[in-house]
Design a protein around this nucleic acid. Structure first.
Length: 442
RNA sequence: GCGACCGUAGCUCAGUUGGUUAGAGCACCUGGUUGUGGUCCAGGAUGUCGCGGGUUCGAGUCCCGUCGGUCGCCCCA
């Protein structure tokens, strides 16, 4: 007897039954379409890599959160990929100087992490990655944001549903410096800003002071972290609110221009509370959230100019983002954007019904084959019943567009063609069927 | 790794201070209708009450353990 547990889905994984699979393809179509229309080419890599590839960028701490393994009888350590960026960086670095500028790639990898699942985070998920390598400056940052927003709009989301929260590490550092944060405390300050919303105010203050900041500096840190306003406001307004020179937000001002040219400002907020994993972002950092901020980030990205060189390649600037399917799926579900009209399984063009006569039975499979060879989506019952009513019911359940009834009319070489949407039906010669159906007959 | 809550039919759930034979809706199957679907009506099948132990005359109900799920914390690539 097989152990009961063996037959259960592993923790944090999903079974994609047809209706769920249709949602997955619906999302992937939007991702691919948005990428392609902005000039990005699809890539993929192995689903597992050398374990050490993942410690280059993230350190040894990450190992406990990976699914890792060795080959039976082997010593090499591997890990299921928890993110795509190391693979991408490895691939880019391997091209070296021959990498064209810019290199614009996207991928839709399945990723794995050995954590306890919770809302919006599973052990196995699909994540869209978009990266632009070789371009400096705000144009590339704005472009990848445009790719992300395009996909969300294709899925039916608007600026009333989602917001792109944008910050810039250089600008934030300049501002913190002006506010009295010393360079050697900068990393701690960023970490505090990142956690600010999760911490009670008094705990935040206590931890901030522990890094050696004055009361005034803590106030400034708090003010900076809480600074959020629509991107339709100029970044200079942030500087003014914090009593800082306009030059400190120069990077955001340049980005604003690039976003405006793409019509993105209505989707965006300036939000200096956005930090994102301290490790490797070097400039613009941004996240996309549902407007209420109830869910985890839908997407996160930014600029990481050291990435390619970190993985042994030439010095090349780069920016990009990742967007997971789990949080996005939850949001689409909540917004009613996954109803049958928008996401549906392919509809059969025709459902063949046999009345059960000898002639009809003999004709059924050859006709199905002929229509399928003609490119049509054809189904028929696999049950024993030849009750026409039952077969029509099954055709409806499969959401077939048309039914063809093989019955007494066969004696004159004809069949009944019925539209299940309108209910209309007529008699047509067998020989005309493919042409009639192929025209998208109703 | 830590914490909270939840496990009853395929699905969503009800089940009274512990009490006899565990229920409903949806879905499914059959018939009304042997050549016309979606609606309707009638009927039918369906359970290791997650699993193991304990308390009790008696446990779906209480206790302990365990497995699973959900949601947080840590972490977040």
């Amino acid at each position: 007897m097989v152990d009961r547990r063996t037959l259960q889905r592993p923790k944090g994984t999903r079974d994609f039954l047809p209706d769920v699979m249709a949602v997955r393809r619906h999302i992937e179509r939007a991702w691919a379409a948005a990428s392609i229309r902005h000039g990005y080419d699809e890539i993929d890599g192995p689903t597992f890599e050398h374990l050490d590839l993942y410690t280059i960028k993230s350190g040894d701490g990450i190992v406990s959160e990976l699914f890792s393994f060795t080959r039976a009888g082997g010593d090499d350590k591997y890990a299921m990929r928890p993110e795509f960026t190391p693979t991408l960086a490895r691939m880019a670095a391997a091209q070296g100087r021959s990498l064209s500028v810019p290199t614009k790639w996207f991928a839709m990898p399945t990723l794995f992490r050995a954590e306890r699942p919770q809302r919006g985070r599973l052990r196995e998920h699909n994540q869209w990655n978009v990266d632009c390598i070789g371009l400096e400056g705000p144009e590339a940052d704005a472009e990848v944001i445009a790719v992300a927003v395009t996909a969300l709009r294709l899925l039916g989301l608007t600026e009333a549903d989602v917001r792109v929260r944008i910050s810039h590490r250089g600008a934030a550092a300049a501002m913190l410096s002006s506010l009295g944060v010393h360079d050697d405390a900068m990393a701690d300050a960023f970490a505090l800003v990142d956690r600010r919303e999760k911490l009670p105010p008094d705990v935040f203050r206590e931890q901030a002071k522990a890094t050696g900041l004055s009361d005034e500096a803590v106030d400034s840190l708090n003010a900076l972290g809480g600074m959020r306003m629509p991107a339709t406001e100029p970044p200079s307004a942030i500087a003014a609110a914090l009593e800082l020179p306009e030059s400190s937000v120069a990077a955001l001002t340049a980005l604003a221009e690039a976003l405006d040219q793409r019509g993105l400002l209505p989707f965006c907020d300036w939000d200096l509370g956005i930090v994102r994993g301290l490790a490797y972002y070097t400039g613009t950092v941004w996240e996309i959230h549902d407007i209420a901020g109830d869910e985890r980030a839908i997407a996160g990205g930014g600029r990481y100019d050291q990435l390619v060189s970190l993985f042994g390649g030439p010095d090349m600037p780069a920016c990009g983002f990742g967007m997971g399917d789990v949080v996005l799926g939850l949001l689409l579900q909540d917004k009613g954007l996954l109803c049958e009209d928008m996401v549906s399984l392919p509809r059969p063009d025709v459902f063949l019904v046999s009345s059960g006569s000898e002639a009809a039975e003999a004709r059924l499979t050859p006709l199905a084959t002929q229509l399928r060879d003609g490119g049509l989506h054809v189904r028929h019952t696999h049950k024993a019943t030849r009750n026409v009513g039952k077969q029509l019911r099954e055709a409806s359940a499969h959401r077939a567009r048309n039914v063809v009834i093989l019955g007494d009319e066969l004696t004159s070489g004809e069949v009944v063609l019925k539209s299940l949407d309108s209910g209309d039906q007529r008699t047509v010669p067998l020989g005309d069927l493919l042409v009639t159906l192929g025209r998208g007959s109703d």
